[in-house]
Design a protein around this nucleic acid. Structure first.
Lengths: 138, 138
DNA sequence: ATAAACCAGACTAAAAAGGTAGGGATTGTA
DNA sequence: TACAATCCCTACCTTTTTAGTCTGGTTTAT
């Protein structure tokens, strides 16, 4: 159970976009800032665009911006859009019928993790450096 | 970000062992109960044994039992033993230097998820059916 | 002895992740 | 209008991981 690079790189690029929400970053700028090769970064940005987390400006002088107020975008939303659903359970096997305890525990964990991730906004992450320090590094 | 079958099957088998902590289950019994084919179940049990989550009795009439009091075993311990560390971050790239916000957010999430998983014991999972119902299905 | 059980490691097929490539569409500017 | 800068899209490929299989052990109660 590990986040893939898509999730990590995706969150990283969202950070750089959120830092300057009013300026347009080109793919090559974002590739440089994040340290991720351009074609792969482009793929990730494509996903983020389809999920309406980034906006694009096409043509010359175009590029990418964050689609919405970073205060309204949660870490959970970003990760789910790139990692697929964080759904852990998957009760196959006739074993787990109506009241399967394994299934219920997975559903519980699933909800808790998502709640947790949705409590943290992209904006808080940007602020992290300064005022959130103490709540983050315990 | 999804649990592999190892984690799911492993938690399932730990549940069946915890339900009757005093009886010895053979591999084939556990394979039947969990609905997982025997050779693969055996592999999973091997991992759980090395992690000291199950005990074995070798030879005829042998089998598997839970190694410790289910109250002392957490869901997190089980999942980590099968899924590897749930470590999400991994700041490569000179980009993320001393005060990388992405790294810190991942470390924060990592701790929170592990805290969460370690708050739930195997015993509580076994009880789930009856008294934990309302806290689990919200 | 023998049969019932666990043990250990190597092998393989399938899926997912990670990365590449290349051509197409859009648009600001000269 | 031409052209260069830009996003856009799909298909492909390689590597790693997952999931499962196989074989041949070792241990021990009867």
């Amino acid at each position: 159970m590990k986040l893939s690079t898509k999730g990590r790189y995706g969150l990283r690029v969202m950070y750089f976009l959120a830092v300057e929400p009013d300026s347009v970053n080109t793919l090559s700028e974002l590739s440089k800032k994040t340290g991720v090769n351009a074609p792969y970064m482009e793929k990730i940005l494509g996903i983020l665009k389809r999920k309406k987390l980034v906006k694009t400006v096409r043509g010359a002088n175009g590029g990418y911006t964050v689609a919405r107020d970073p205060k309204e975008i949660t870490i959970g939303e970003i990760l789910r859009s790139l990692e697929g659903n964080l759904y852990l359970a998957d009760c196959n096997s006739g074993i787990c019928t109506k009241s399967c305890p394994t299934k219920r525990i997975f559903e519980y964990i699933y909800r808790e993790i998502n709640d947790l991730l949705d409590k943290k906004s992209l904006y808080e992450m940007v602020l992290g450096e300064s005022n959130n320090e103490e709540s983050i590094s315990r």
